[in-house]
Computed example of a mutant assay.
Amino acid sequence: MIVRIVNMHFKETSIGKFQNMFDAYKEQIRNQPGCSFLELYQDKDDSQRFYTYSYWEDEEALDAYRKSELFAKVWPQTKALFDEKPQANSVVKIHSLL
């Protein structure tokens, strides 16, 4: 399993627009083949910073999403709202305790 963590910092005036976009697309993103989990977090100290966590079956599933029509539609709209370069990391989950 691949866990994709994306750290994004938005223009203050774009936070509401981003949250509306995320609400509009979250189900479609979560239902992409190979995606089993999607969450959005907002930093407690910096209201302009958000993180997405998504779980992907494997690197191929994540790559397929990045090449999808949905990603081609969502990512340019999201990028236009940033005031800092986003950071994306793919990690492999070692342990999880619930």
Results as ranks from 00 to 15, higher is better:
63 D>S: 07
62 L>Y: 13
68 S>L: 03
75 W>P: 05
95 H>I: 13
53 Y>K: 09
72 A>E: 09
58 D>L: 03
81 L>V: 10
46 D>L: 08
40 L>Y: 00
88 A>F: 02
51 Y>H: 08
94 I>Y: 04
40 L>P: 04
44 K>W: 03
52 T>Q: 10
64 A>S: 12
46 D>K: 14
76 P>R: 11
84 E>K: 15
75 W>A: 12
57 E>I: 00
40 L>M: 14
63 D>M: 09
88 A>Y: 04
43 D>H: 06
64 A>R: 12
45 D>F: 13
69 E>I: 15
61 A>R: 06
90 S>L: 08
45 D>M: 12
52 T>I: 15
64 A>T: 13
71 F>A: 04
43 D>P: 01
57 E>V: 01
89 N>Y: 12
71 F>S: 03
94 I>F: 07
84 E>D: 12
56 W>R: 00
56 W>E: 00
43 D>E: 11
42 Q>G: 05
48 Q>Y: 07
66 R>K: 14
72 A>H: 09
94 I>C: 03
76 P>A: 11
78 T>H: 07
83 D>N: 14
78 T>Y: 09
73 K>S: 14
44 K>C: 05
82 F>H: 10
85 K>N: 13
44 K>S: 07
81 L>Y: 05
77 Q>R: 11
70 L>Y: 08
71 F>T: 01
83 D>C: 14
51 Y>W: 14
89 N>H: 10
58 D>G: 12
46 D>T: 02
79 K>T: 06
96 S>A: 08
72 A>W: 00
41 Y>R: 08
51 Y>G: 00
73 K>T: 15
90 S>P: 02
83 D>I: 04
57 E>Y: 01
85 K>P: 06
54 S>T: 09
61 A>T: 00
59 E>Q: 09
73 K>A: 12
86 P>R: 07
57 E>M: 01
63 D>A: 12
43 D>Y: 01
62 L>V: 10
77 Q>T: 02
61 A>M: 09
92 V>W: 01
81 L>H: 06
67 K>E: 14
64 A>D: 10
46 D>V: 05
72 A>I: 03
80 A>H: 04
57 E>S: 11
47 S>A: 15
77 Q>M: 15
64 A>W: 04
50 F>I: 02
66 R>C: 08
65 Y>C: 05
53 Y>V: 13
84 E>Q: 15
61 A>S: 15
88 A>W: 02
72 A>P: 00
78 T>C: 07
87 Q>D: 11
45 D>A: 11
80 A>M: 05
89 N>P: 01
79 K>F: 05
64 A>Y: 07
40 L>D: 13
64 A>H: 09
93 K>Y: 00
92 V>R: 11
40 L>E: 09
84 E>V: 05
45 D>L: 13
78 T>K: 10
58 D>F: 05
45 D>Y: 04
42 Q>E: 14
81 L>K: 05
75 W>N: 09
94 I>T: 03
48 Q>C: 13
81 L>S: 07
57 E>Q: 12
82 F>P: 00
64 A>N: 10
41 Y>T: 00
89 N>F: 11
40 L>G: 11
76 P>D: 04
54 S>D: 10
42 Q>L: 06
43 D>L: 00
51 Y>N: 01
89 N>V: 14
79 K>S: 11
51 Y>K: 02
68 S>W: 07
91 V>S: 08
47 S>G: 10
95 H>Y: 14
90 S>D: 14
57 E>F: 01
40 L>I: 11
46 D>Q: 07
84 E>F: 05
86 P>T: 04
93 K>L: 03
64 A>F: 10
88 A>T: 15
